[in-house]
Design a protein around this nucleic acid. Structure first.
Lengths: 205, 205
DNA sequence: CACTATTTTTGCGTGCACGCAAGTTTGCGT
DNA sequence: ACGCAAACTTGCGTGCACGCAAAAATAGTG
């Protein structure tokens, strides 16, 4: 990886880190993008070359790393594992709480409306990498099916996060509980679609 | 319906219509929200009480009516129709080209990047009404499953619109063709999930 | 009709997103 | 080492989104 890309990566991380730190120190409402840019040592205009909203950098600090690992985790599941299981397990793994410093950040995020909204959009970033991982496991060149399945999964994840953040009484049951459980529940309805796709293109073709 | 709600509806439609007309006349880039507001006879600030971006009103003029009919169309399918078929047919019906004046508008929308992007987000508005329609057909009080399925369908529709707007070579096949065909293709992978959900909660329970 | 409560509209102020063009850095071939 | 081309950064200008609080419109009640 050349100097160019390393620098870009460094800038991106500096912005994320600065954004999160400042938001935790002064509260999300009291952080202007100029502050973030200054703390990261770049111009305000450059901030918007990396992130297209003030909230994005803060949320990215919490979600980016996790999301980048999910597709990898799916690919890494032992061959022969049913696709639905591979996806479910990969997601549950990666969304299992990693530590304390992230938890404070999440509390901050779920407090502020704009941040919440940006947070709930974050699973959209799963679509492309996940679609590739699924296509690979299906061993097909038909990208379209993989894209639809990945988008469905991303949507399910988003819904799991939604009900995790503001729980609701659903029918007669109160839905709340650990995020892993909510993920499993949200993914369950899609499992038949994942299975069907992989039976459509059997191993030995 | 009281005077209040009728007026709100009228304002909303006036804004949509004005936005679309002005965009067609002067080109999307040369329409400021102040112009739209003035043409609709409200203050600029009021525009943003109805739409949260300049593009939204333009796109809404083309998509809103259609979307509001889809959930109804699903509900209206004869009882006994498999859920997957009901959803597919309802979508195909409603997305079948209605006429000429809309076609020009669509050309306009697909030309401008910001409008394209807003247009591709429009299926998100399907989620809530569609989730209710699906829940009703499933005859279940478990909203969660219906929400996930509806979100999956909305995502599939979005992907159909994406590949319709900028077609791609996918594997060895060039994907292009009529929107109805693209919709069928995009929905196909989800059909097993819809079927499984309705077999989970059989009629006579 | 008169009075009050609720909802909607409006103006203002502030910070933000982004196109553009000029300036700066990096990569690479010679 | 030089110099050119491509990529990245920056400043500027413009229009936009939205919180807030005051004013206007509407609904409901006696």
């Amino acid at each position: 990886m050349g100097l160019r890309e390393r620098k870009k990566q460094a800038t991106r991380e500096a912005l994320q880190e600065a954004a999160l730190r400042l938001a935790m120190e002064h509260g999300p409402a009291n952080v202007r993008v100029d502050d973030i840019a200054e703390a990261a040592g770049v111009s305000p205009r450059t901030y918007n070359n990396y992130f297209s909203s003030r909230e994005e950098a803060i949320v990215a600090a919490v979600t980016t790393e996790r999301e980048s690992r999910i597709a990898g985790a799916v690919t890494r599941k032992p061959p022969g594992t049913p696709l639905a299981d591979a996806v479910r397990d990969a997601l549950v793994e990666q969304y299992t709480d990693p530590g304390e410093h992230r938890r404070e950040a999440l509390l901050l995020i779920t407090t502020d409306p704009a941040l919440r909204s940006a947070f709930l959009n974050s699973p959209a970033a799963l679509e492309h990498p996940l679609a590739e991982a699924i296509a690979e496991r299906l061993g097909t060149t038909d990208t379209q099916t993989a894209r639809v399945l990945a988008a469905g999964v991303a949507a399910a994840v988003r819904i799991a996060l939604e009900t995790w953040i503001h729980p609701r009484t659903d029918g007669l049951v109160v839905v709340s509980g650990s995020l892993p459980d909510l993920l499993r529940t949200a993914l369950a309805p899609l499992a038949p679609a994942l299975s069907a796709a992989e039976n459509q293109t059997p191993e030995g073709r």
